[in-house]
Design a binder for these strands. Sequence first.
DNA 1: GCGGACTGCTTACCT
DNA 2: ACAGGTAAGCAGTCCGCG
Length: 891
Amino acid sequence: MVQTRLDDYSKTKHPEEKEAEALPFTETIEKERTKRVFPPVAPENLPPSYFVSATYDGKIRKALIKLYEPTSARIYFWYDNTGHKPYCLTNLSPYELEKIDRVVRHPGFDHAEIVEKFDPLLDKNVKVTKVVAKDPLAIGGRARGCLRDIIPEEFPKVSEVPVSRDEIKVWEAKIKYYQSYIYDRNLWPGMVYEVKNGSLVPKKVEQAERMVKQICETFKKATAEELQYIEHWARLLEYPAPKFRRVALDIEVYSPIPTRMPDPREAAYQVVCVSLYGSDGKKRVLLLKRPGVREGSERLPAGVNLEYYDSEEKLLRNVFDALWDYPFVITFNGDDFDLRYLFHRAQNLGFRRDEIPIEMGRRVCLLKYGVHIDLYKFFFNRSIQIYAFNNRYRDVTLNDVGRALIELEKIPIEKPIGELTYTELAEYCFRDTEITYKLTSFEDDLVMKLILILARISSMPMEDVSRQGVSRWIRNFMHHEHRRRNMLIPNAEDILAKKGKTSTKAIIKGKKYKGAIVVEPVPGIHFNVAVMDFPSLYPSIIKVWNLGYQSILCPHPECRDNIIPGTTHWVCKKKRALESLLIGSLRDLRVQWYKPKSKDKSLSAEIRNWYRLIQGALKVILNASYGVFGAETFDLYCPPVAEATAALGRHSITQIINKTKELGIQVLYGDTDSVFLKNPTKEQIRELARWTEKELKMGLDVDKVYRYAVFSSRKKNYLGVLEDGSVDVKGLTGKKRHIPPFIKKAFDKMKERLAMVKTPADFEEAKKDVCNIVRDCYMRLKRRQWESLEELAFNVVLGEAPEHYVKTTPQHVRAARILKEKGIELKAGDLISFVKVTKEPHVKPVELATKNEIDVDKYVAYLHSTFDQVLDALGLDFDEIIGLTKLERFM
DNA sequence: GCGGACTGCTTACCT
DNA sequence: ACAGGTAAGCAGTCCGCG
């Protein structure tokens, strides 16, 4: 589980540790590294190594597993030696299949055979034909004429009886070959393997195994079937993580038009600087010598090596040497820029294909030797952003993520790249790699380990898991489980046809079904508010109610009376659904083991950290585990499952609210899975929790206790002060990121003042101070006393390219179009900063505006509405505060 | 031709 | 390419107004 556990078998010290002690690499290791052997085929016997990646080698037509051996800190390639081949499944008989000329004569067709599979939609075993190919592209490549398409096209021609087109089915043809290989061989990416006599075998880590056993023993109430899954997940979560030898890379390119980013596909301009920041302590900046460029006087951080090159080709060769060497390469946006640019630039300079260490894809850039992690893609992932990093960064830029997570920002530059001195350029480029590297090293390599753990849970290579969204992660562990159980993986359209759509009506127009309940808040200030919630409500429901695409609306007549409250759907009583088992056991592990252990002070800090990481990874997956069933893009899309989950959520919270009434507790507010209780006794809380456990078979915990909470009449809007004086602000305009900093600052001041209130009596003083804060802000606006126009800027994200708005023209789009006329390129996702001005069209990009044209009254109105959300609960009135008389207000 | 009531669009938030 | 529910501001439309 933690690095030290690897000591079970790795007696040799990791090279990184030697580096840390400032000892040089031994000559031999260094020589080994620089002597490039490609491909680096694993020896007949390879010491324990981590399965970090998988792919398909088209040249030798075999699955290829990339193993990271942590002692030498090198990647080894292991090629399949079992003769596994790509395939898909069909309901055509081999006899019928062989009558299809285009199949039999297809150069990639190998053979067809009958296999037996369990069909989860029919709930019975079926015989299907396995169509085996020589090459994955023959099954379902992007090119036309693959077997997946040919079979349904050609079948009617050879059929003896007239058959409609949709009775011909092809299954599992869209699964990537290396994923298929992983599932069939029951391999677990991210786990430890050895090569023994040429074969890939799992390596047991004893200490981790002992932990797995210990964990299983704590789940006394689990059924045997559930325990099997708990053990499975626990093993994936408890095995150790290696140290990742890696390098962060960033390039700078000369551009004749300073505002324009050079096109990486054309790679028309020189690469003038590359920085490499290694986990081994090597900090290199490679600079291209150019006429007329000055030295500069900047002092670079200690340990940074400047290397000057008189040819771009030599510079690139040195960069490529690093890419052939490091097992992990980290970039920020390397898929779309750095590696793509390097690839095309090298081609333009006449490099041979085999001299370039980059594998170009349409949307990604991978490495021939190691593993490329593009942190931009990783941090862009909404689930990662929200659940793993609690929304601490808001823009997915190197600067913002760096500032939020490691307090390190980019070096500001005013001049175009071409006008920088060597040291300015080096300093700038180096800092980018420093941020990039540290984003993977902070909190004891948290990000690297997170990616490793997610790779294990999802059965995916590290590259893929770091680039794709939660729905892919969930799909893939579901696929793995289907194959492990010899179940046919159903096609999405068959699930939809069999299980149908939804039966409830959503509140929001355009949504597919009804969602959660939000309780009308009781406006005012309330002291001693206990917030109780269901930990992981939806995953709990999926577990307790046996929800899954198989079990919902199952074919058994005897299950039809098992109706889900609030719906017309029934659920199976006979057989557990895979989702229920897989998601339910993950939930149980998080709630009953990893979350409590991550806070257990009797454990070492190191173990607590690991547990905190695991519970965070589980949170990311569990939070998405219900939503995917309602997402059309999910391969196991099943609307009734999503609908039933939400309905049961409403059912659960409603029952809790009814029970609180019975117990005489006032509910102040509630949202989806929580109830806010006014000044409850310990006894009342205990009784509510006991009742819930008994009647609903789910836990109900006290999540937090507010010293006091402030509600307006608005849902999803409140402010709560915790016992320790920290403040939760939810949904209030004052915390939204688009509002002008000028107003936000006043709001934050008020927040700080409210945090100091301890008793109802304290409020009188606090109210006065709040009035002063509001009045002061108002006066400064009226007197136009602000430090800069930026303080007044609204910052709104463009959801689409400016020209794409046709129905309406929102203000930020108006501002964006003004910028566009000035020749500034804008695209979806860009942040627009604009101020409100008196003259038409009432908005102006902040950089074009001047102090006097600001429409102060608009800002006063905004200040008003922002503070109203809190003021009415405090019994204060904005207009009175700013000294307007009743008459003036009327006017 | 104008203004208020209304709907719809858009963004940012909550769970 | 996880879901639905809520708030807020503004754009655009409809309708009455002798």
